[in-house]
Design a protein around this nucleic acid. Structure first.
Lengths: 204, 204
DNA sequence: GGGGAGACAGACCTGTCGGTCGGTCGGTGA
DNA sequence: TCACCGACCGACCGACAGGTCTGTCTCCCC
């Protein structure tokens, strides 16, 4: 049992560092040696715990990425209040973290989806599942918002969710290139403008 | 002189195929041999015309990508009419092309920006320049729109441009994953909704 | 206290990558 | 006709990738 604990600790360290480096330098352009060197571990250690590089990546997505996206982007918008307000503050927080800590997990998702699209169907599927979960939570929040009178019923919840996800992935992509503070400000202002045009009980 | 023509033809073929494969499979995951095999050419031919793989990529960005982005995303919105209308039809066209032909150049730009961010400063610079050119053209169109009474002066043109670019990059990214037709429809509907909330002389 | 299993070390294998380099070939001008 | 040059060929190189395999260390259990 003590052994099992040590094993888990090592696996966690590997996954953490793996996510970090894969995100920073890209999956295909980061070698296992890069990760193992940073952790002071060997090939033997790696292949003792994982079957392959791809298996390693899948484990990162399933265990680390999913949890992070859930806690940062899904859970915060499950409130009972104005869905626009919830989504807005949620994204504002995410972008604020992204400004200081380069590894905000909402965008890690988008980044990986881009990298694996058309290259690795297996990993892509897991990533798409997470993205889908985010989308569903957005749609659910918006539908509830309709019941609670925050937006009119004729609005397309799925469309709004798509637009929110798209714009967020996009702006995070731009932020990596520079001027994160300004981009965040501009983005949030426009998002508010967009939401405002649909809101009924305006709390803006 | 005849020789020079042949040389240019070969260079063009290489750049075309290079862009195609780099976009489909990624720059770092596409080998020169992949490209040369598709063209029935040899390493010797490649290194006769280009100094390195990076040099090759830069030449593609400068010559092919820039021109395409210019003709597809910049030129079409330089009209005198309603900037919202212009941008809208421009993106609609781009997405329509993207739906049938997987290589729409607006997104090739976004895709490459993602891939080279933080990995190759040299290539990134050229890509950012093109993106900046697009942004400038959007801002210019919006500013002219203010003069012509299509939107109120208090709106932030830079912010709108950022939001448009972000959302477009984002939705194109999602489209690669599947359901391009639906995503395009949803995106355009929401974009119209967003624009409508700012338009003065509504032509919608 | 010794043996067996878990956790890891690291040399090594094989394939592929970007890049090099001597050689080839067809057209062209003298 | 023959030297020459632009355009190209393809064998080869060293670096490095993912993955394998054998050996080793350290606990725990009997």
């Amino acid at each position: 049992m003590e052994k099992n604990l040590k094993s888990r600790a090592t696996i966690n360290r590997m996954q953490q560092k793996g996510l970090e480096l894969f995100y920073q330098k890209g999956y295909y352009t980061t070698s296992l040696d890069d990760i193992l060197k940073a952790l002071q571990l060997s090939k033997g250690a790696f292949y003792y715990h994982f079957q392959s590089k791809e298996d390693f990546m899948v484990s990162i997505v399933q265990h680390l990425l999913f949890r992070k996206v859930y806690s940062m982007l899904i859970e915060p918008i499950e409130g009972k209040e104005d869905p626009f307000r919830n989504i807005e503050t949620c994204l504002e927080n995410a972008l604020e973290i992204a400004e200081h800590n380069p590894m905000d997990f909402g965008f890690v998702l988008g980044n990986f989806m881009n990298e694996f699209n058309g290259k690795n169907e297996n990993v892509s599927r897991y990533l798409n599942d997470i993205c889908k979960a985010w989308e569903v939570s957005l749609v659910t929040a918006l539908q509830k918002g309709k019941s609670d009178g925050y937006l009119e019923r004729h609005h397309d919840s799925e469309g709004i969710a798509t637009f929110v996800i798209s714009s967020y992935f996009g702006v995070r992509s731009l932020m990596v290139g520079g001027n994160p503070r300004m981009l965040r400000y501009q983005y949030m202002q426009q998002l508010r403008c967009y939401f405002k045009s649909m809101a009924l009980k305006s709390t803006f």
